[in-house]
């Protein structure tokens, strides 16, 4: 895994994007481990405003509110966040139709994240692209290593273990049997303008991003990829940018809990020779 990855279709002229993520449940920012054990991390509007001022290149807002009827309050929240920031803003969570996407965009988001809704109905991606343009369509993929041998899947081997990457939906609660890297490729072909790729194995652990998952996905698609899941320290972000060709890295807890600004992380990246906006 130390081999340098081949750089393909990648301009070194664009900066690498650092993206704080707000997981929002019932109007509060929360943080989980392996998609569970939620703890409160603050007010979304306050945090969004702080990140926007502190050098975030973009903001992702994921509504993890379980009940459908409480989603209405989220729209107001999206609109309040949009008023205080001047950077691109992606909103996801529970998007299953064109109307859901339109509601989010009309509340002030720039892009819509689609996850379970796209797995259940892949044609939705093409519909969204036709109406809003593919730059508005972000496909969020939650992937987990599956160690069962399956000749129909793309198998990998690391540290003597064989596995493939499986797509999970409904907030990581339900397996799908889908190969994540193939799904990324299909989603991009159908209309996704960007892939937000989360490693369930690493999410919330602070053990670093899943480099293999990330690079294999970047290799498979020609749209930008955002790595997510596992960032515990600025060094993890350095690692994913140095060992893969990923376009952007998303993180939550290092920004929520540490008394460190986004720009502090970006300065560390710059000192390692990674191009960032500062």
């Amino acid at each position: 895994m130390r081999a340098r990855f081949q750089s393909r279709r990648q301009s070194n002229l664009l900066t690498k994007r650092v993206i704080p993520c707000l997981d929002v449940d019932n109007g509060r920012v929360v943080k989980g481990l392996h998609f569970e054990s939620i703890t409160d991390a603050g007010d979304p509007v306050e945090l969004a405003s702080k990140y926007s001022r502190d050098g975030a290149d973009e903001l992702v807002f994921l509504d993890i509110t379980a009940s459908q009827e409480k989603r209405g309050t989220t729209r107001e929240l999206v609109s309040d966040v949009a008023k205080v920031i001047d950077i691109p803003f992606t909103v996801g969570g529970g998007v299953g139709s064109v109307d859901d996407a339109r509601d989010i965009l009309l509340s002030g988001a720039d892009k819509v994240g689609v996850n379970t809704g796209a797995v259940n109905n892949p044609a939705l991606l093409t519909e969204l692209m036709g109406i809003f343009g593919k730059q508005c369509v972000v496909v969020a993929i939650d992937a987990k290593r599956n160690h069962s041998e399956d000749s129909t899947k793309t198998m990998f081997e690391e540290d003597g273990k064989k596995f493939w990457f499986e797509v999970f939906i409904y907030g990581g609660r339900r397996s799908t049997g889908l190969d994540a890297i193939r799904w990324a490729k299909e989603a991009a072909a159908l209309g996704a303008g960007e892939i937000l790729l989360t490693s369930i194995d690493r999410d919330g652990t602070g053990d670093g991003y899943d480099v293999l998952l990330t690079q294999k996905t970047v290799d498979a698609v020609s749209v930008p990829v955002i790595a997510s899941g596992g960032c515990g320290r600025p060094e993890d972000m350095c690692e994913i940018f140095q060992r893969s060709d990923v376009d952007a890295a998303l993180a939550a807890s290092i920004f929520h809990y540490e008394d460190r600004s986004v720009n502090w992380v970006k300065e560390i990246l710059r000192d390692r020779g990674i191009p960032v906006r500062l």
Partner: peptide, 12 residues
């Protein structure tokens, strides 16, 4: 089409 499309991100 030799480039990543869309051109998405911060450029100088």
């Amino acid at each position: 089409d030799t480039l990543k499309i869309p051109h998405m991100g911060w450029n100088a």
